[in-house]
Amino acid sequence: MGSGQSAPTERVFHNEIPISFSQDLVNRLEDNLSTPDTTPERQNTLDNHVRARIQAELARLQAEEVHVREQIEAVLERENLDREKALSGAGAGETEGGREDTTSGNVSSSALLQGDLEEVQKKVERFHVRRQLDNHPKVKDARDAVLQCYQAKTNTPLDCIDSVEQFKRSVAEMERQFVDSLRR
């Protein structure tokens, strides 16, 4: 069944009129067989076909490269997120001063960085408050008293010992307050 249909059959036609070719056509066909060069039209067609195939393959490779790059970026992003979660979770330990260790392998989460920034801002504000301790009224008054005494008693500066002692006590009090502020 069907074996006769799948086998190619050869048909031979017999021509009652003899076919003849002109000598010019035969010579041209012989020239084409003997010379391996192709005609410029045929060469252009071949070149265009090769260029089209190269462009198609290049486009396919570029699309594949983009796909692979996206996959790599996705995997790296997942790894970084996992690493950040591990660092912010049980992996982060306490360091000196009660501050958590936020970096490992140069990875920090933005929430931890925000907390560090707020801590630095608080320290700067405390520093500015400490600088204002220089304007302590007791120290200013004692300093002014020493200056007035020295100006009034230019010939006997040793008579200003009481005002100098008061100035020393006020400076000592200010220093104590300054040291206490550093401990906070």
Rank of each mutant, 00 (worst) to 15 (best):
A86V: 04
E94C: 10
R176I: 07
Q177F: 09
R28Y: 09
V107A: 06
P137I: 01
I161Q: 15
I161W: 07
S163C: 10
N32C: 08
E84Y: 03
K85W: 03
K85A: 09
F167R: 01
R183H: 07
T39R: 01
G4K: 09
I72D: 06
N135V: 06
R184P: 00
D159N: 06
S163A: 14
P157T: 01
E65S: 10
L133S: 08
P36M: 02
A92R: 06
P157C: 04
Q5T: 14
R53W: 10
A172V: 03
R11H: 15
D101I: 07
H136L: 10
N155M: 12
P18K: 05
N48G: 04
R60D: 03
D31N: 11
R11M: 11
P8Y: 02
R184D: 10
V26Y: 04
G115L: 07
D141F: 07
C149D: 02
C160I: 01
F21L: 09
M174A: 09
I17P: 00
R126V: 04
A56D: 09
D24H: 03
A92D: 04
E30S: 14
L87C: 00
S104F: 07
E119N: 08
S20R: 11
T38S: 08
L147E: 15
V139Q: 01
E57G: 01
G2S: 11
F21Q: 04
R184L: 12
Q71D: 12
V171Y: 01
T103D: 09
Q62F: 01
A7N: 10
E118L: 13
Q121R: 14
D24K: 06
R143Q: 12
V66P: 00
G93F: 13
P157D: 04
Q177C: 05
D134L: 15
S34G: 05
S104Q: 10
A172L: 08
E10D: 15
Q5M: 14
A172C: 02
R143S: 12
N15K: 09
Y150V: 10
T45W: 01
N27E: 08
S170Y: 01
G93N: 14
D82E: 11
E96I: 13
R42A: 07
L61C: 05
A56Y: 03
P137Q: 05
N48V: 00
V164P: 00
M174D: 02
I19K: 05
Q62H: 05
K153C: 04
D162Y: 06
V66S: 13
I161L: 13
E70N: 14
R131T: 13
S3W: 14
E64P: 00
E10V: 15
S34A: 13
K140A: 09
P137A: 04
E119L: 09
V171R: 02
A7K: 14
S110H: 14
P40C: 02
E165T: 12
I54D: 05
Q5C: 12
V171L: 09
G97P: 00
I19P: 01
D47C: 02
L25M: 12
K140T: 11
G98R: 03
T38Q: 08
T45V: 02
I161D: 11
V75I: 14
D47M: 06
C160N: 00
D180C: 00
S22A: 05
L58V: 07
V66H: 13
E125F: 05
E10P: 08
I54E: 09
G2C: 07
S110F: 13
E79P: 02
K123S: 14
E96R: 14
T45E: 00
N15A: 11
T95A: 15
V124W: 05
S163F: 03
L29W: 12
